[in-house]
């Protein structure tokens, strides 16, 4: 709804504010639920539960956790960096949270600003490599967010997915 509102209203401020609030709240809620679900899965693996989880259930749960992790953090990065889409489009002088290689001296494209796909790539590479790749965090909150994302991805891959593969192999 807010995305359609921004598109149809040609980026009216009111719709941009609504979009920012809704997406930040949704991304935070989704990520909190993912962490809780991941903790539940790990507890189930270690302690056990009323029913034993199969390998396929563990594998699919880890895939969904990983995908939701990437998508949620991509939304957060996109909305937080340099005032969000509105701040970047209007050229507001807000300190950016990430330094993209496109803005490096010598390679800077005049008027270039990162878009959603750039943040999706940032979230994907952080969850895949568990570290920074070519985009550097500049602020503390960016570093904390990247630590959180890499930690969730690491736990998902190392504990849940590996356990699922182990169960499936046996």
């Amino acid at each position: 709804m807010p995305l359609a509102g921004v598109t149809l209203a040609s980026g009216k401020r009111r719709w941009l504010r609504i979009e920012r609030a809704v997406l930040l709240a949704a991304a935070t809620l989704i990520l909190v639920l993912t962490v809780v679900a991941l903790a539940t899965l790990i507890r189930h693996i270690i302690v056990g539960g009323p029913e034993r989880l199969g390998g396929l259930e563990l594998l699919t749960s880890s895939v969904v956790s990983w995908v939701v992790n990437v998508a949620g953090f991509a939304l957060l990065f996109w909305q937080l960096d340099a005032g969000g889409p509105r701040g970047r489009t209007t050229g507001a002088k807000i300190r950016p949270d990430w330094l993209f290689p496109q803005t490096a001296p010598g390679d800077a494209a005049p008027g270039w600003a990162p878009g959603y796909v750039d943040y999706l790539y940032l979230a994907f590479s952080t969850a895949t490599a568990f570290s920074t790749t070519d985009v550097m965090p500049l602020t503390g909150r960016a570093e904390i967010l990247m630590i959180l994302e890499a930690s969730i991805a690491l736990v998902t891959m190392v504990i849940v997915a590996s356990r699922a593969i182990n169960v499936l192999a046996n």
């Binding site: 359609a4 878009g115 959603y116 999706l120």
Partner: peptide, 17 residues
């Protein structure tokens, strides 16, 4: 690092989101 001002900036496309 910022877009040049002047005129109403076009909103970023939302379809990838």
């Amino acid at each position: 690092m910022t877009a040049p001002s002047g005129g109403a900036p076009a909103p970023e496309p939302r379809w990838p989101v």
